[in-house]
Design a protein around this nucleic acid. Structure first.
Lengths: 224, 224
DNA sequence: ACTCCTGTCCCGTAAACACGGGATACCTCA
DNA sequence: TGAGGTATCCCGTGTTTACGGGACAGGAGT
């Protein structure tokens, strides 16, 4: 919540007018220090080589729509050059593709330019306080996206425990005989389980069963 | 942003003290009208039957840790009874499992009780304004979760276009001969593609290839 | 008591798969 | 020019699947 020294912020924004607005707004906040402003990602990246480690930004406010290298392209580069630096997207685009790409590239926040200055400074504080900050519309879209990718609990009892075990082993590449050995049951038993799995999932072969299981969230796509 | 008539809010919270705090805080806001308070999900659900449609809440503030039926259990019931009503979780638990379960059951927001009253009223406004509201820590966790489930773009060129096409058809349950017919190529060509797919993914059969493709995000788990 | 579901086991056959080999053609990039 | 990747095609052989049938024991629920 409170920081001993102010948070060093770098702003990357091509519109000079909006850049000034932000600059003025952040000047009022003692816990935020806007150390650098750039109009393009290229100059921002170059500046890192002539900036001492102690002066490098702890947070970057990044516009997506930049001349030359886009913010989306620049994002992973900053992440590589400054692994400890948080990146907050501050853009006009609420395009779902942009949002998802920014997240998959490691952004810690996503605010729209329609946000109030208060929301922006709050967002900076939230992000530096080990959190993330999302515009309300973006948050809703993210919730919906995640919802679709989450396991449907009503289907948890569709397959029996044993069947799920067998299906998981199948998805790992084991053939039925190997599964039989590993589970210490007969080959034909595995065969029966598999038959039941197909029936319940409404598919006719193993690859389709695995795909369906992933789509339904029966198998977690975490691990290795 | 502005509503003609105030938003009708129902609060479900077992702690009488905190219930009063919220009640008092919301009284100051003309655009929010706290119409009902309940200490358990059961009484809240029962109250719906004696409430005219016009008086039903537009937003529910729901605690997770309730005596009797938990908030997590109650959530889908409210969603079924009141499909148009948004539900915002307001709880102490920032357990990742609780967060994910609440989202998968259709919550529109997730705030912690450590939130300021200002954040809560802002959150209510955000949610009613067709958005979602997330605590900063919850938002970060959600971003990380989603990040893992998103396609890894660096692997997009791992499989050729044709190979991905073949793999997708395999995941849909087609056997190789059918794939050959559909793509109007020879059976042996499909066979070769499949062999290359296994090689590139480091697997030895079709089910494992499909699983790997899902884990890498090469195949989208959207559609049907 | 009876049915339903689960998990275990068995047989046989036809279809599909995995994998080894090899071939031609195109395009790109070094 | 030559190497590498992609896409197309072919053969053969042994392995694995898919699916039809049937059987039996234990537990849960009606």
């Amino acid at each position: 919540m409170t920081h001993i020294s102010p948070t060093r912020v770098m702003l990357i924004e091509d519109n000079a007018e909006y850049r000034e607005v932000i600059k003025l707004a952040l000047e009022d906040h003692p816990e935020i220090e806007l150390t650098q402003c750039h109009g393009t990602a290229e100059t921002a990246l170059r500046s890192l080589y002539t900036t001492s480690a102690a002066a490098r930004p702890q947070l970057i406010l990044l516009d997506l729509n930049l001349p030359g290298m886009s913010g989306l392209e620049a994002l992973p580069r900053f992440r590589r050059e400054l692994p400890a630096t948080r990146i907050m997207i501050l853009t006009q685009s609420d395009s779902e593709a942009d949002v998802l790409r920014a997240i998959s590239r490691g952004a810690s926040g996503y605010l729209l330019k329609s946000a109030s200055l208060q929301q922006i400074t709050d967002g900076i504080r939230d992000v530096m306080d080990d959190g993330a900050s999302l515009d309300k519309g973006v948050a809703q879209f993210i919730l919906h996206t995640l919802q679709q990718k989450l396991p449907k609990k009503d289907l948890k009892n569709l397959l029996s425990e044993r069947e799920l075990e067998v299906l998981t082993l199948i998805s790992e590449g084991l053939v039925k005989k190997e599964i039989a050995d590993q589970l210490k049951i007969g080959y034909t038993t595995v065969d029966t389980h598999v038959g039941h799995i197909y029936e319940k999932l409404g598919v006719r072969n193993a690859p389709a069963a695995v795909a369906k299981a992933f789509k339904l969230g029966l198998i977690e796509d975490l691990d290795g």
